[in-house]
Design a protein around this nucleic acid. Sequence first.
DNA 1: CATGTATAGTTTATACATTAACGAAGTGCC
DNA 2: GGCACTTCGTTAATGTATAAACTATACATG
Lengths: 157, 157
Amino acid sequence: MALKDELGLREGFHTLEHEALLNIYFTSSCIKKAATEFFRAYGLTDVQFNLMMLLWYQSPEGGGLTQVDLSRMMLVNRANITTLIDRMEKADLVKRTAAPGDRRCHIVRLTANGEKLLRDVEKAYRENVRSIMGPLNTSQLTRLIAMLERIRTSLTE
Amino acid sequence: MALKDELGLREGFHTLEHEALLNIYFTSSCIKKAATEFFRAYGLTDVQFNLMMLLWYQSPEGGGLTQVDLSRMMLVNRANITTLIDRMEKADLVKRTAAPGDRRCHIVRLTANGEKLLRDVEKAYRENVRSIMGPLNTSQLTRLIAMLERIRTSLTE
DNA sequence: CATGTATAGTTTATACATTAACGAAGTGCC
DNA sequence: GGCACTTCGTTAATGTATAAACTATACATG
């Protein structure tokens, strides 16, 4: 259904460019809502899960990432990571550890509990993603990704 | 540039579906950051501008929308509209007025000041949107919109 | 080595989003 | 007329995001 009808608007958008931009914005919003709903059953938020996935798949050999690493990979301000990690430490999902050779850094690592939870959730998450994106075939997904990359490039010029 | 490189990831995404989903999510995030930056010069946020646009273009004859109308058109909870309108009333952008025949409702309307500001900002905003979406031609925009609509449909099943 | 500069993390103030619970007001129906 | 049910807006608790100002630490260079 067209976005105009989903939002119950009386008037449409003036330009195709604006309609496309709002489609990206509201589709992302819908995805976020669905993710929030999905993770609630596990006592997690989508942001917390994303952070745990980064710790699991993007950590170098020794394991763990600094808070600045996380802020860069999540495209958020580093101030935001502080309170995020505070909450996740309280929930026994991650822990801050010392960085050898740089006393400014905190290396964030999954706790045993966090690692176990991640393993439990991940399979269902991947199936969910596949089913959400199911209606698009491989070539459509590739084209979608290429278009979004071009938009991001145009944004940073 | 591929999302993996923009975020500085060591490992890529496991599936094309996941990569596409994260592309939507992060592209929307980039758009939001650019919009925030754009509106800062006018003392507005992107959310406030969006609400003012709805009041201007989506109001019925008498003018104005209820808070529930706004929450539906913005895809947010109605509780969120309360504090949003509180802030915007304080900034003299909108006002709550009585709804004839239904004392439960507040009809939200632009103030003279809000209307003037909207007119000032709108032209530059539209040019901005065109330039951001510039790299995609009409047929690409149409296909992008169609794909995002299909994803939203699949989300609500 | 000393000084200047850059980087990592935190704090504070603010904005936006959710859910749950509540009060006030409209609606339907006997 | 009265009672149940719904709808509209608000409040409180919580999570996520920002920018700006701050501390502590590391580094580079003269």
